[in-house]
Amino acid sequence: MIRKTRAILAASAAVILLCTGPSAAFDTQATAAFVLDEKTGTVLLAKDADTALPPASMSKLMTLYMAFEAVRDDRLQLDEELPVSAHANSFGGSTLFLREGERVSVRDLIRGVIVLSGNDACVVLAEALSPDGTEAGFARLMTQRAQQMGMTNSVFKNSSGWPADGHVMSMRDLTLLAQRLIEDFPEFYPMFAETEFLFDEAESSNRFNRNPLLALGIGADGLKTGHTQEAGYGLVGSAKQGDRRVIFTITGLDTAQARAQESESIVNWAFRQFAEKTVTRAGAVVAQADVWMGATETVGLVANDDVTLLLPNTPGADISAEVVYTGPIKAPIAEGRQLAELIISPEGLPEHRIPLFAASAVPAAGFVSRMMNVSQVLLGRLQPGSEDVM
């Protein structure tokens, strides 16, 4: 007889889960948003997260990523000086006030993009790394590299996020990009926490980082703001408290003040409303599965590793948890064989499916025991309402 079975959780696992409860969903005012817990990979919030939207200066993160790759691969040197072209000199908005014909070190250009959001600095880097020496050529390379990295809703028309038809990114893509910057380039990431960079004393009006979170003492250490009339006010942000890091992207806010308030609220919500909890330890029996034709009637189900999940941190209500397997499971059963899944469904978060394995071997029953099992099944089938299938 074969049927889908939901086992009763062992008391130890159930108690852990009953100590947690659902958290209220964050009601963001952003047009689109994505919030990620980096360590566990848990998506805490997704609002139109895969919609391709104008990213404004937040797309400069892709230019920076490719510049970091070039330095790592020795295609650029930090002390190398690059020429400023007429095209780079033509940009307005946020700039380093570069002048055509001057030469600027790669290090200063990178800091100028990160801290000052320099459009001209982006173009200088882009032209140096472009296959054909043009910003348009570099933008095509950006799109290709983004696709390789899994950013499938990103298309670039320039290196800076200057308004252009078809220049778009999704909030999920921007968050993924921020995560890659943090994890792939720890030697460069501290630059994102710099609050001031005075490149030219004669042009000091643009020397402060626009990230409103850096001075709040909430663990914020990056990454990039953005604003155009079409995109509204946005931010790709990250904050670390203890051993947890939250990375998020928002866009479409009406004012810089609204962006600052929304960003701070998201960080506080993400850290206060969720916490890592150990659901079960490696080798601890989570549940018992029924055994058919075995030396024992049940077999313990265990996880091979400690299972620690990010779960709502508000007490008061249960989180759904169940063990699912197809059973009874016919003996013999080898120790360590995967038999079931522990499914945990926190309110407002993606469900977690954790494989469970046989805690011990179960040999097949002897001849007499097998005959008794078969007899019991046959007798059961003769009872009215029986639905088991041999």
Rank of each mutant, 00 (worst) to 15 (best):
P355I: 13
G112N: 06
N89D: 08
D243N: 12
V246W: 00
L379S: 05
V106A: 12
F68P: 08
E387A: 06
F34M: 13
F199H: 08
A86K: 01
Q77L: 13
E38I: 05
S238E: 09
S57K: 04
T175D: 07
L223M: 13
R244Y: 05
V323I: 10
G137W: 05
S205T: 09
T249M: 13
A70P: 12
V35S: 07
A46R: 14
N268Q: 15
F197E: 06
A7G: 09
L235W: 12
Q229M: 08
W292Q: 12
D318R: 07
D165S: 05
H227D: 00
V155E: 15
R99W: 07
E187S: 09
A33F: 09
S345K: 15
T95K: 14
A86N: 03
G166C: 09
V113N: 04
G150L: 14
R210H: 01
R111I: 10
A361S: 06
N313M: 03
R140E: 02
E100R: 15
M293I: 02
I247F: 01
Q288W: 00
L53H: 07
Q288P: 04
Q261F: 07
V285E: 02
G226A: 05
Q376S: 15
S130W: 09
N89M: 01
V236E: 10
V71R: 09
T28W: 07
A136I: 03
N373R: 13
G161D: 14
L44K: 10
Q144T: 15
D165F: 01
Y233Q: 12
T40E: 10
E335G: 11
T278Q: 11
V113Q: 03
R103F: 06
Q261D: 14
G348I: 14
K157I: 03
S369T: 12
P83W: 01
L181T: 03
A32R: 10
A364W: 11
A270L: 04
A287F: 06
P131L: 01
P363T: 12
N268W: 10
I16S: 03
R6L: 08
F274G: 00
F138I: 05
G242P: 11
L214E: 10
R72I: 05
A88F: 07
Q179L: 07
R6H: 08
T51C: 08
V368W: 15
V246H: 08
I329R: 03
L382A: 02
I333A: 06
T314F: 06
T280I: 11
S160A: 12
Q288G: 00
M62K: 03
E81I: 02
P22A: 06
E187D: 11
M171G: 04
A24M: 02
G21M: 05
P363Q: 10
S386D: 08
K39C: 02
L356G: 08
G92N: 10
V115I: 10
L176M: 11
M293H: 02
